[in-house]
Design a protein around this nucleic acid. Structure first.
Length: 950
RNA sequence: GGGCGGUUAGCUCAGUGGUAGAGCACUACGUUGACAUCGUAGGGGUCGCAAGUUCGAACCUUGCACCGCCCACCA
């Protein structure tokens, strides 16, 4: 016997364990060979992370697809795993060390720190996995992977070496985005532009406001960015004259090596080629002409700081300017600057330099401006363009195949408009900086010889082999192939043939391994094939690659999807997935991205605890309309929790009424109209859900299921069959019990991808009677299309529902007490209606609260009259009717009908409409007019009778 | 500056050419043997504004307004 309420907390854990114990999620279980594979690789969450709303949405949608396809008989692999998340994880552990007052990372040393991180991973690494299980994710956990496990690390090495040897990975010294807090380079994608607006101003020579260094310091502390400083740089030839430059970054002036003006800017033509003396530093720097300078901006003369600005770096290449680095890794002024500034933090230096310039009379003015300041997305501090050696991937080359694959449709984005975003980025892709000055991650497999030679290899031993070969004058067995050898030793062309045997040789040198690790996304980029066993040629790789669908958020199209496309095509020579389904972001009520720092996070686990995993899943699915963000409202979750309860109680009702499943029941052979009707409705719903899921319209699929279960099965079907169930034993009751149980079974199947727990629980419970269940619901086939629709039954039940609804409506409007049982007199009814009324009299009486239904030529006097098709249904309410109110009601009905007719008439009066609209539309309009006209006639007749009686 | 998306009921949102919808909230009635986490009935919208295309526009086009996001730039 089912309880009155479904208790998710008591059920979910048990059900999930059952699924795992039966191996329901295992790929290939009993299906390998004959079944088509269907594979999704999970977007690997941070190994030490915990489930947030984005994960909940992402994994719910994947699970819906995976469960759907599994029921449809596909051999499903949902490949799970976690990501080591370099910066994020290292940050967490460092913070933990600090919080526990332990020695910091640098003091502790690399090996000890890594031990610490692994310990942390061991401690918290299972959290997210367990939380995904609570959500109901049906991943094949037996295949769980981690980006730093042995196999995936091997894949990373292989890819790095492979790309290096093809010249697609290289080392370069150029400006990178440097994060002074984490002391590492980061990629362009990890930089966030944050808009800053200045708040104060100052003008030289204003007698009211002399320069006040203390006030400036205070203002700058509060508001360090967003100001434009106009500096005067004295001319070398004539120190009384200046070139004024404007900058938002005063402290970088210490590294200026030129001032640029536009070649056609007449204000400065005479100065080009002359020199200025850089204040505070004393360096003489040239005034150059370069297109980069924009006469419209600032003063038209721009200071050039090649080592600290990406544009200036370009200018320096064109003009052969020195690149003077004035910042250290902490973004403090370094020793290349005058003593007075050395060691100062960049913002302290900013203050001092502005003050010093003012003291020299070289500060012309300060004005507030709005500009964006690049920040590290993890550290939150302003990043510095900084000149360092880093490793890069030649993304431009790899992008070619990745672009072509989407152009040709081998991989499709859903919704399709993300294609544009993908192309836009791919076609303008920049070299990808992959080295990170971190410790947690895949250490770069590059070793340096005594003279700086680079040996990239799968292992240290192999690196030594290569080095031996190199230093002994033999050809390096595997250096990069480059069409144009740039002359550097490590880029000699490879020699074919035997690797020199090194046994017994004494090394006269040592190699040092590159300390840096790879960008986390480098290993994530291999995810679609590394998790399947690559570089080994495993059966899984053969069977499941290319994978079927990738489900992810648009915020990581660049980070991840693009990189997987590039890596997949490069190493597997085939796209990593057929379809990329891009879902929305779950945002807070203001449409803002949820984040811990903003404190606007809704915890999915709390929702699961309160409402159950199924309610949360259904909410997310029902709201996952394509191309739109989800602003989550709790009331919605509550509503769908109620839906689960409704389903539960429908099952409970069935149980209480002996609606047990019957062996051999065939929905195509039912005889009762109501059963023929529900069979057709079930099938229609199944077809809709199937089609919508195939098209990734999750919200439509969920909506169809909801509408059917609540609005059709519970509200009508169960009500309609009550008289039969309560009636005498016999054929009709037997059939109806079986049909109700059958329909419930179908509902459980259709709902299972969305609400796996409650449906599985009900499947088990309802399986306790009747024929045994062959399998748990998770492995039960999806409803198949048959031909169960029955127009005659649809029309008949439609008529019954219409009559009942109309009577209820009038009762309510006339304030008839709910308990009062009325008589119904049907007049003007044709044969069909009379037969229908007779056949369904019991249930019409019950659902409309009637005492009796009788036929008459004319509606009795003093009755409320309802027009039902060709007939008029009358409720004799003599003495209870407010005559005026009833007249008003009828008149209102007539008015409504007339308004509809007027609309139709207006349309039909339009000659062009008649000429051009499709015949079906015209017919429909004519039909409408006829229907409404007939209705008006009946209503008018009713009104006349009413008035005559009065 | 380039791109994408949004503006529909009090709130959160569906709805891509032919009769404006859902959940929540609201009003009235109701504890009738599945369900008050419920039932029945109801109120509530000139679909941001303007012009255009069309027989017909919430839907297509253009412009405008406001909101959000992404990319680039920012002296």
């Amino acid at each position: 016997m089912l309880e009155k309420h479904y208790q998710p907390a008591e059920v979910e854990g048990r059900i999930y364990r059952q699924w795992e114990e039966t191996g329901a999620f295992k790929a290939g279980a009993g299906k390998r060979g004959e079944a088509k594979p269907y594979c999704i690789v999970i977007p690997p969450p941070n190994v030490t992370g915990s489930l947030h709303m984005g994960h909940a949405l992402n994994n719910t949608l994947q699970d819906v697809l995976v469960r759907f396809e599994r029921m449809r008989g596909r051999d499903v692999l949902w490949q799970p795993g976690t990501d080591h998340a370099g910066i994020a994880t290292q940050m967490v552990v460092e913070r933990k060390l600090a919080a526990e007052n332990r020695t910091d990372r640098r003091t502790m040393g690399r090996a000890a720190f890594l031990d610490e991180v692994w310990r942390w991973k061991a401690e918290s690494g299972g959290t997210i996995t367990n939380q995904l299980k609570r959500l109901g994710a049906s991943c094949d956990w037996s295949r769980d992977r981690f980006t730093m496990d042995e196999g995936l690390s091997r894949a990373v090495l292989k890819v790095f070496v492979g790309l290096y040897e093809k010249g697609l990975i290289y080392k370069d010294k150029r400006l990178v985005n440097w994060d002074p807090k984490f002391q590492t380079a980061i990629s362009d994608l990890e930089v966030q532009q944050i808009e800053k607006k200045g708040s104060f101003s100052w003008t030289d020579g204003d007698p009211e406001r002399p320069f006040d260094a203390a006030a400036l310091a205070k203002a700058l502390k509060k508001d360090p960015s967003g100001h434009l400083y106009h500096f005067r740089y004295p001319l070398k030839d004539d120190p009384t004259r200046y070139v004024t430059v404007a900058t938002t970054r005063p402290e970088t002036m210490l590294g200026d090596t030129a001032v640029a003006v536009h070649p056609e800017d007449e204000r400065y033509t005479a100065l080009v080629g002359k020199k200025v003396v850089l204040p505070l530093v004393g360096r003489e720097i040239p005034i150059i002409a370069d297109d980069y300078s924009d006469p419209e901006k600032g003063t038209g003369a721009v200071k050039i700081t090649p080592a600290h600005d990406f544009n200036d770096f370009e200018v320096s290449s064109r003009h052969n300017l020195a690149r003077i680095n004035v910042l250290d890794a902490f973004a403090r002024i370094d020793e290349s600057a005058p003593d007075a500034y050395r060691g100062l933090d960049r913002f302290v230096a900013r203050e001092k330099i502005v003050a010093d310039m003012a003291a020299l009379g070289l500060l012309a003015k300060i004005e507030p401006t709005t500009h964006t300041v690049p920040h590290g997305d993890r550290s939150g501090v302003p990043i510095e363009p900084w000149l360092t050696d880093q490793w890069y991937v030649d993304a431009k080359t790899l992008a070619k195949a990745a672009i072509a694959a989407v152009e040709s449709g081998r991989t499709q984005f859903v919704p399709e408009n993300w294609t544009k975003t993908y192309f836009e980025w791919m076609r303008n892709i920049e070299p990808w900086c992959i080295s990170r000055q971190l410790w947690w991650g895949h250490q770069i497999p590059a070793w340096y010889g005594p003279d700086g030679e680079i040996f990239v290899a799968m292992s240290e031993a192999e690196a030594y082999e290569k080095a031996e070969a190199h230093y002994s004058g033999r050809k390096d067995p595997s250096s990069p192939q480059r069409e144009e050898d740039d002359g550097e030793g490590q880029r000699q062309s490879p020699a074919q043939g035997a690797v020199p045997h090194l046994q017994g040789s004494t090394r006269k040198f040592t190699l040092t391994r590159d300390e840096d690790v790879l960008d986390t996304w480098f290993s994530s980029g291999l995810w679609a094939f590394s998790t399947l066993g690559w570089p080994d040629e495993t059966a899984e790789l053969k069977r499941y690659y290319p994978t079927s669908t990738l489900v992810t958020g648009f915020d990581i199209i660049f980070f991840w999807v693009a990189r997987m496309m590039m890596m997949g095509l490069e190493f597997m020579h085939e796209v990593p997935f057929d379809t990329v389904y891009i879902h929305a972001l779950v945002r807070d009520e203001k449409g803002q991205k949820m984040s811990k720092s903003k404190g606007n996070v809704i915890d999915p686990l709390e929702l699961i605890e309160v409402y159950g995993a199924d309610a949360l899943r259904f909410t997310l699915t029902a709201m996952a309309a394509q191309g739109r963000d989800i602003k989550l409202a709790k009331s919605r979750v509550e509503g769908y929790r109620n839906f689960a309860t409704k389903l539960w109680n429908a099952a409970r009702f069935a149980e209480m009424n002996g609606c047990a499943r019957t062996a051999g029941f065939d929905p195509a052979k039912v005889e009762e109209t109501v059963n023929r009707w529900i069979a057709g409705e079930v099938e229609r719903t199944a077809a809709t859900i199937t089609a919508e899921l195939e098209a990734y319209r999750f919200n439509e699929a969920a909506g169809a299921a909801y509408q059917f279960v609540w609005g059709t099965y519970c509200d009508w079907y169960l009500e309609l069959i009550k008289p039969i169930l309560n009636g005498p034993d016999g054929k009709a009751r037997t059939e109806t019990r079986a049909a109700a149980a059958w329909a419930l079974d179908e509902i459980l199947r259709l709902l299972h991808p969305f609400m796996p727990f409650i449906t599985e629980e009900l499947w088990t419970k309802t399986g306790e009677s009747g024929p045994g269940r062959g399998a748990p619901l998770v492995l039960t086939p999806w409803p198949e299309a048959r031909r169960l629709e029955n127009t005659a039954a649809d029309e008949e039940i439609g008529w019954v529902i219409g009559l009942i609804t109309a009577i209820r409506s009038v009762r309510s409007e006339m304030n008839v007490p709910a308990a009062a049982e009325l008589e119904l007199v049907l007049s003007g009814a044709n044969d069909t209606s009379r037969i229908r009324a007779g056949r369904h009299g019991d249930l019409i009486r019950r659902l409309a609260r009637l005492k009796s239904i009788s036929l008459a030529a004319e509606p009795p006097k003093g009755s409320v009259q309802i027009v039902v098709g060709e007939a008029t249904a009358a409720l004799p309410l003599a003495g209870h009717i407010d005559l005026a109110a009833e007249c008003a009601r009828l008149e209102k009905e007539i008015e409504k009908a007339r308004a509809e007719i007027a609309k139709v008439d207006a349309r039909m009066a339009n000659a062009e409409f008649v000429a051009k609209a499709p015949a079906a539309v015209i017919e429909e309009n004519q039909g409408r007019k006829a229907d409404f006209s007939a209705q008006i006639e009946k209503l008018e007749a009713a009104l006349r009778r009413l008035k005559a009686a009065g």
